[in-house]
Design a protein around this nucleic acid. Sequence first.
DNA 1: ATACTGACTAATC
DNA 2: TGATTAGCCAGTA
Length: 117
Amino acid sequence: MDFYQRVASVCRQIPYGKVATYGQIALLCQKPRNARQVGYALNKKITGDIPAHRVVNHQGILSGAAAFKNEQEQKRRLEEEGVKVDQGQQVDLRVYGWKNTLDDALLLEALFKSKGI
DNA sequence: ATACTGACTAATC
DNA sequence: TGATTAGCCAGTA
C-alpha cells in the first residue's frame, strides 16, 4: 500500500515545467514493473494536490483518459508551465523530461524514510 | 481461487 | 520508423 504514497511523493518532486513518465516514477518507487500501477494510482487511488499533469507515458504522450474534468485540461496546465504540447498531445521528452539526479534520488529516499514508507 | 482490466513498456516484426 | 505483440501486476468482480 505504501507504493501509492511513494507515487504521490515522487509526483510532488517533479520540477515545475518538467514531465516524468510512468515507468520512471515506478522506478523511483523501487517497483520497476509497476508503471501501470502508477497510472492506476493517479487515476483512482491518489487524491489531493498531486501534479498529475506532469506525468506522461514513455513517448511523452498525454495518455489523458479523461483524467481531468475536461480533456485539454492537462495540456492547458502544461503549457501554462511553458511545456509545449503538440496537437497529437505529445511533449518532447528530450527537452521537458525530468532527468533524475542523484540529489533527487537521495531526497526521495529521505522523504520515504521520514514518512515511514 | 479465477478472470479480466488498464493514465504502461520493451521487444519484435 | 512505425505498428503489433507479449509481458507486466495490483485491483476488482
